[in-house]
Amino acid sequence: MVLSTIAEAVKYLFKRPYTRLVPAKTGPFKTDRMRGAHILDMSKCTGCSMCQQVCPANAIDMVEVPGQYPQNPRRRFPRIDLHRCTFCALCVEYCPFDALYMTSVTGFELYTRDKSTTLKSPVELSRGDYTLVTVKRDLYVTKEVKASG
């Protein structure tokens, strides 16, 4: 009978709404393992271009950066196009020198009206916020995760 649907629906009237009332900035969509924008540790990267080789989306190319980097004499560092990356974390996994990390910065934090801003140069990449790091070389920093939402 149609009543069965109505009866169930009435039950839901008295439940807490499932809808998120105020979609806050960090809502339950984000977790502590989220794969998002990268951080490059420029004091570790040797310019081996392993990350460039493994990237399935060809989002990484190596560019030369001014400055002195003893471990990286050719001064070649990865530049990542966040508008091309698929956030698979393969580059992080395959970096032999543990120089790349991923943070939980995704989507709306990267929103832009001008898409050329998401092509991140090595220097921009190295300025990321280390407190947001979610993925490291042995993958997924956080072993213990708080329950969310």
Binding site: F29, T31, R33, M34, R35, F87, V145, S148
Partner: peptide, 19 residues
């Protein structure tokens, strides 16, 4: 479905493409 996607995001780091 949303509950399951949240679980996926929690374990694998993405809601849809888990990789």
């Amino acid at each position: 479905r949303e509950e399951i996607l949240k679980w996926f995001a929690w374990v694998t780091g993405h809601r849809i493409y888990h990789n």
